[in-house]
Amino acid sequence: MSFIYELKSVPAHYARAEGSLLSEDDRPVIGYAKYTVSLPQKNKKVVNLLFAHGTGMNKSIWRYHIEKLYELAAGNLPWQLGTVVAFDAINHGDSMVANAGKLGVTHNWTDNAKDALCVVKNEPELSSLNLESITISIGHSLGGFTALYAAYLEPIFFESIIAIEPVISSKELLIPADQISPEQYAYAVSSSYKMLKKLDFAIQDQFEDEADFVEFMTKYSFYKNIPQKVLKPFLEDEMIAGKDADGEDIITVKACKKQQMVAYIGARHAITNGMPILRFINIPVTHVMGSKSTWNDPDFGRSYIRSEIPNCRGVEIENGEHLVNCEMPDETIAVIIDHINEAVQRANKAGKQFPATLTDKQRDEIFEARYDNIFKEYEQIVAEAKKARAKSKL
């Protein structure tokens, strides 16, 4: 199935965390790619998708997945793909290019979730509440946090979530601040510092030429195990021509090293904010982990995330690591399709949430019926409590 491809932007969420912007006069923007089906099918549920990338990546890391999903949806699947959006975090990709010189040394990941909602609200296909379509949010790592936190803030826009290796849990941060020992605190800070130093050493953002860039990314970077069909669109989107301090031509990346580090540093604060909200996510979640992942205490993350989110299904991708969505794209697409199939089944059973038009009389009737139902629910709870007390006395 063919689609129309557009590059767009929208004003970012403005009331950002302290230190996010260099000047209060700056107005950052979020860049994103929009895919729209060019030949819609009749009598099929429309599924819209929002993709959020991980730290160090950009919107095009999802390009292969999106193209493949459009191709598969044109076949015998019981739904069609409508609008798909993949956005760049504020200090990544096209967003970083647009916001150069404006960003500070704070990247609060909760702001990334609010930026995602700005994108959703800028696209009527994603934000409209109707019976004909549903919107599903899909994110990896930083993007997994983003998908979960955005759904916590405004769940009404999303039918469900696919969170792939989301960075949103830590055993050490579960300990109350007044109960952690100085030794535990020192160990936690030391571990984080060591990881950040390794990341700082491993990230490179300037190259002699395109060949040098491609060689580093394909042989030495975090992305060396990503197949070309996924890596190529990401690299093409990320590479830009620049100048060094002496004015010589060089190749740079859109997400400069320092802003990538700012994003990584923001993870600890993000987890502290993210863990308490998991139990309040009231829409279905598929939590995807690679079976060989060693990132962010995976064993604790599996059990904690899946037990905290009320309606959570855990999926393991065999032999996958933290970059499982990139390194094993076809296996990830199979998980996405399975999730969408279940989401469409739920949506087909659900009634229309908001009637298109209502008279004043209908509005009054709906309000009164729902108001009365509140008291009926209380009466039922009280009755059940009385029965339980009576039974306990026997």
Rank of each mutant, 00 (worst) to 15 (best):
A147Q: 01
M1R: 04
K258S: 14
G266P: 03
K258G: 04
K352Q: 14
F213M: 06
E154V: 12
N112V: 07
R306V: 14
Q260R: 08
P284C: 10
N296C: 12
Q380A: 15
A17P: 06
G104Y: 13
F234T: 01
G19F: 04
A186V: 09
I168E: 02
Y187Q: 14
N91L: 08
K59F: 06
R268E: 12
A267H: 03
K232W: 09
D246M: 12
D25Q: 15
P28C: 02
D26T: 06
C256E: 10
E368I: 13
P28R: 02
E123L: 02
A202T: 14
Y371V: 10
Y5Q: 04
T357W: 08
F354V: 15
M57P: 00
W79K: 07
V335K: 03
M57N: 07
E321W: 09
V120S: 00
F367L: 13
H65Q: 08
W295E: 10
A98L: 13
R63F: 04
G139C: 05
W79A: 06
K232D: 15
A15W: 04
E331F: 08
Q228D: 12
N91T: 14
M239G: 00
P276I: 15
G247V: 11
Y152E: 01
V189H: 02
A245Y: 04
E24R: 13
G144Q: 05
N99K: 06
A100R: 13
L358C: 07
Q184R: 11
I250N: 03
T252F: 06
D205T: 08
